[in-house]
Simulated assay, not measured.
Amino acid sequence: MLTNPSDPDRILIEVDDVEHDLLPAEFAPYAPQLRTILDWARVYLTRPHESLGRKGSVCPFVQASIDRRKFYLAVFPGRPRDLGDVATALLPYRDWFLDLAPRAQAGSQLATILVLFPDLLPDDIDLVIDGSQETLKTDYVERGLMIGEFHDGPPDKGGLWNPDFRPLNSPVPLLAIRHMVPTDFPFLRDSRDHTLAYLRQFASQVPSSVREAMAHALVRDGLEVGSR
């Protein structure tokens, strides 16, 4: 368990805390949901899926994240009143993430924080999870971060290689924070601001798999590599 040095009430739960029943009292009621998400990560995210449309695991970073002790969990208890509640709750985790895993640090791309919303009702999902992700995405992208939405709605977004597959399906609704990586451009190409943020990070590292999409985005938005 990690405690935020700037906010002692802010806690990150580690894998060992879940596995060995070491949860602090305020999170003990959510032990089943935390175990469910850890099992989901190990059984679903770290393995291939027949509908994924490509080889490899659903998420190529999760197994290493768990193995390297960079897989963190948090809980938002109750139901947020509005998107402002969610943004306020996530802000300390966003900033803490950058301290825990500075981009220049080796292996920083393996770090992730999953903030669970176990008390949500089905009717809350569109606003709290999908709405928050859409509203907060630009702020996170500008900082070199990605924020992802996961729930069993099912999610609206299809997979990159199979649009009928829903890779963001999870048994407990959550928002995930991680570093942006060079292969993330397909998630950012629809926005000029997101394309610019991506270029600031990776202009010299654009992988061959996304160069065609990058070229289309540059022409569409009248941009050039090196644009600010």
Rank of each mutant, 00 (worst) to 15 (best):
A197M: 14
D82W: 04
D119E: 02
I66A: 06
P8Y: 05
S209D: 09
H194K: 15
L127R: 13
T195N: 00
V43S: 15
A213H: 10
R211V: 03
P207W: 00
P171D: 01
G53S: 10
K137A: 14
A106E: 15
A74F: 08
L174E: 02
E26M: 13
P5M: 06
F76Q: 05
G222R: 01
P186E: 07
S57F: 05
L110T: 06
A31V: 09
R192H: 04
V181T: 14
G107K: 12
L73E: 11
L91D: 14
K157Q: 11
L223C: 00
A31G: 05
P182Q: 08
P60E: 10
L38A: 02
A31D: 12
E26C: 13
R10Y: 13
N4Y: 11
G153S: 06
G148H: 09
A28Y: 12
R35W: 05
P118Y: 13
D123Y: 13
S209F: 03
S209Y: 03
Y140S: 10
Y44P: 09
D99T: 14
L168R: 09
L188G: 01
W96C: 01
L136M: 11
E142D: 02
L83E: 00
Y93V: 02
L196V: 09
H151W: 06
H216D: 00
R54P: 06
P207Y: 02
S208E: 09
S108L: 13
F185I: 08
